[in-house]
């Protein structure tokens, strides 16, 4: 497993037709109606067509920019600070029981 998985020898898959909105919405945990899927597919298809212009650019010798102003070793000393009071931690909880967040039973 490598982050920079080779994209294959062929043309990079920069085609709007590749957008499988059902699959992607599932990854994003978004329930979409069939009408929304249709609408978003068309709208994002246009955007992806525009984005496909990036294919023109020769980036073979270019490093990616992850941070506008890269510095390294930004960290803090390991000194514990005060925690949130439990009441503050749970203040916005939609459902709670026994000082814990409650969700429908998870079965893995």
């Amino acid at each position: 497993m490598s982050a920079a998985e080779p994209s294959g020898s062929g043309v990079p898959p920069l085609q709007s037709g590749d957008l499988n909105i059902d699959h992607v919405a599932n990854l994003a945990r978004l329930a979409l109606t069939p009408a929304e899927m249709q609408k978003f597919s068309e709208q994002l298809g246009d955007v992806l067509k525009h984005i496909a212009e990036l294919k023109e650019v020769d980036v073979s010798a270019v490093e990616p920019t992850a941070h506008a102003y890269p510095v390294v070793n930004v960290w803090a000393a390991d000194v514990a600070a005060a925690s949130l009071p439990v009441s503050a931690a749970l203040r916005n909880a939609p459902a709670q029981r026994d000082n814990m967040i409650a969700v429908p039973k998870v079965v893995e």
Binding site: L19, V59, T65
Partner: peptide, 22 residues
């Protein structure tokens, strides 16, 4: 949806990595 798509398996290089380079 667009952001999930451009990061999804098989598309990272073509979209995100390329965009970072441009």
């Amino acid at each position: 949806i667009l952001g999930t798509y451009v990061l999804s398996s098989g598309y990272y290089d073509a979209y995100y990595l390329r965009a970072q380079k441009v």
